[in-house]
């Protein structure tokens, strides 16, 4: 059996905190920062529990500014 490992990396300085990725993630893994902001003064997206991510790319596709890079790798699990 194969296990899909996924993770995203958000370009925090480019992010504008629109929240569309939070809405797009079906697993609810993305949250906006509550107390920190980037150099533009916007809160930015952060991924929680990256182990649950299945690299579906929905967050990255809906990100208007192209801030999200998606990584995917498959490992076999016996």
């Amino acid at each position: 059996m194969k296990k899909v490992n996924g993770a995203i990396v958000v370009n925090a300085e480019r992010c504008k905190g629109c929240g569309l990725c939070v809405n797009a993630c079906r697993l609810g893994l993305i949250t906006m920062t509550k107390k920190t902001v980037n150099h533009k003064g916007y809160p930015y997206a952060e991924q929680q529990d990256w182990e649950k991510c299945n690299a579906c790319r929905a967050c990255a596709i809906v990100c208007p500014d192209g801030c999200i890079t998606v990584y995917k790798s498959e490992t076999s699990v016996d």
Binding site: N5, G6, A7, V9, N11, R14, K16, G17, C18, G19, L20, K40, Y42, A55, R57, A60, I61, P64, D65, G66, C67, I68, T69, V70, Y71, K72, S73
Partner: peptide, 27 residues
């Protein structure tokens, strides 16, 4: 281990410049 260039499946398009776009969030 996962975050390495060969595992990238989606990233910012190559032709989109690194300069910040002036559009409002979510535009």
């Amino acid at each position: 281990e996962l975050i390495s260039p060969e595992n990238i499946v989606y990233e910012k398009p190559r032709l989109l410049n690194d300069v910040d776009m002036h559009y409002c969030p979510g535009c």
